[in-house]
Design a protein around this nucleic acid. Structure first.
Lengths: 352, 352
DNA sequence: CAGCGCATTGACATCGTTGAACTAGCGGTG
DNA sequence: CACCGCTAGTTCAACGATGTCAATGCGCTG
């Protein structure tokens, strides 16, 4: 069963040459329907599986893509990875996960090591900013998640731009609409990361509502997306004794961490403080109270990313194509953590 | 840079044969220190990377292992996957993740497809029981997580047995020690899965304390480890109006879901009902109140599994070796969700 | 000093597949 | 009827590494 069954075994059984078997398997060349039948029957009967190494060696196709992300601990990344694996666009491809552990050195190393192994890379930057990763030698078609810097276009890098700014704008708009004016945020981290875009959305929403930006309401954290950052951030916020009636965390995990601090401190959510997160991880829906948040659409991000990759993987001249940019939308999920009026069980405001 | 650099490029530059380069790269054969120097220098200078396809074709080694698990949505699996990737034992290996989506067909398909691609497989069964997966043609060394059925020994399958029963026993013992007598459980699912072992621990703990097993306290769910199962389970439990003073969920995610139902129903945790979960996912620590749970030791499970694999991957005769069995321990993490007396911030009871 | 063993290195075939180039046959065309 | 274009299929080499085996040279033994 399958032991030592090669194309020539199949070819012999079907009475054709190995090349014809190869053609049938790959849908290349031309062959009659009867030949195809015979070959397929032989394959079936012998339990033949193509040897991916021989194929990879000869044709340079690996049918594998790499997904480079900081870690799998954060539900957002794990759920995103799952979406990439499941995406219909991924059919027929293997996905190799590379966790960089949020470490700049590992991130660099992982990106540089993808020379021959995979047909393409989906890269979720974390520790490296554009000025650090752009100079790296991308040897394979690469799709980057995040905001596209101008230089990326000539480098041939494709981008999936997520609606961080718009999403944050929508959340803050919602909080303002609820009558909140002193909206604290936790999760700011200097640099080119998602947090910066979310902060931008926060600021523009405030500005549009004529609410002054108050720096003392903005809490920075080192690791923008850890529960413990939420605990630390909320603790610091409370300790400053600054008045606030809403708290917007740049990640749901941070919000969950913050929520535990608020609960311990006897601060009622949403009555004293309206709480909102970002990412719409599963846990947000089951927090007490359920968390208002923004869904960036992991599924459509994943599908878009894989589709971009595929379109490059198949063509020879992909290196010459200029980098493309796709944007995805978001859904604001209003839940009980931010609504004092009895909340609708689940209300969605959709964009784009 | 790296374009078309092969062993013969290196060999030429170093003034040796390709075989010698191969020897240096693999540490096989013998060569003088000076030769090694020259070869390494040439490799460095040319930026040479070995072609994994050529190597895989010739030597049948892939330096890749597959991790087959139901999904990445469940934090326990995601965190476990991360541990497998990070484990020091994994150094030098690539890890391919295969998500079976908790689907029996996919699970079968994925397991059967690992003929040539990887050197070994770590398999976390979910939809298939032993009677279903044991007959499958395991073509590569395989380590299975869970309880080892007797037949597995001759098949040469290695097992990492996790302390589900002992862990559950400890949790329930703890709840009993807190004076709870009516301990409900959510998560039972018929079959050979972890839930069955946890249920066993529950029953023996009850028996040892002389508390009768009451079937009306045992709530089964379809998908044992989804938040929504917790919601559904808790809702059903409340609807039966059966009296209970503690709730033990077989997974933390279920407990978090149940917690949200209890909160909505005005049931105080831990005052009215002591709550405990299982798995010790990150979110458990940050629930309100923090969740008492059992840590099975993802890290040591991962390391043990990879170590078992490696020990087989390296040897030729691995097929002949009988299946081995390794057991791992657990940590009971007592937190505020189950302790009425002011809880210690974090208390750990360690086993094995 | 013949002969042996060992360390070091190389030549060559080979793993299984596919790209390039080629042949055979057949119907149609000017 | 010579020739063209097209389909169906073949032959052969090559992808880049490594296993096998042989060759070389050196020190040592008897």
């Amino acid at each position: 069963m399958g032991r030592g069954v090669t194309m020539s075994t199949v070819a012999e059984k079907a009475g054709v040459s190995t090349k014809t078997v190869s053609n049938v398997v790959n849908g290349t060349g031309s062959y009659s329907p009867e030949t195809e039948q015979r070959v397929r029957a032989a394959i079936e009967e012998l339990g033949y599986h193509i040897n991916p190494f021989a194929r990879g060696l000869r044709s340079r196709r690996t049918d594998t893509i790499a997904l480079v992300l900081p870690n799998l601990y954060q539900p957002f990344y794990a759920e995103f990875a799952e979406q990439v694996i499941r995406s219909p666009e991924t059919q027929g491809l293997k996905v190799v996960l590379e966790s960089t552990r949020g470490d700049a050195g590992r991130e660099r190393a992982v990106l540089s090591s993808h020379r021959e192994l995979v047909d393409g890379v989906i890269y979720v930057p974390h520790a490296l900013g554009p000025e650090q990763y752009l100079p790296l030698p991308f040897a394979r078609p690469t799709v980057v998640l995040g905001e596209r810097p101008a230089e990326a276009a000539q480098l041939g890098l494709d981008y999936v731009e997520t609606a961080d700014e718009q999403g944050a704008h929508a959340v803050v708009g919602h909080l303002l609409a609820q009558g909140r004016r002193r909206i604290a945020v936790i999760g700011e981290r200097p640099g080119p990361w998602a947090g910066a875009r979310r902060l931008r959305g926060y600021r523009t929403a405030l500005a549009e509502a004529g609410v002054d930006y108050d720096e003392s309401l903005v809490i920075g954290v080192d690791d923008a997306d850890l529960w413990s950052s939420g605990v630390a951030g909320a603790t610091r916020l409370l300790r400053t004794r600054v008045r606030f009636d809403a708290l917007f965390c740049f990640h749901d995990v941070v919000a969950v961490g913050a929520l535990s601090v608020l609960a311990r401190s006897g601060i009622a959510v949403p009555d004293d403080v309206a709480l909102a997160g970002f990412d719409d991880i599963e846990a947000a829906r089951f927090a007490s109270p359920p968390l208002t948040t923004v869904d960036l659409g992991r599924e459509s991000i994943a599908r878009t990313a894989v589709a971009l990759l595929r379109s490059r993987m198949d063509r020879e001249d992909s290196r010459e194509l200029p980098g493309r940019r796709e944007s995805t939308g978001f859904d604001l999920r209003v839940r009980a953590s931010s609504t004092t009026t009895p909340a609708p069980t689940e209300s969605g405001v959709t964009a784009r």
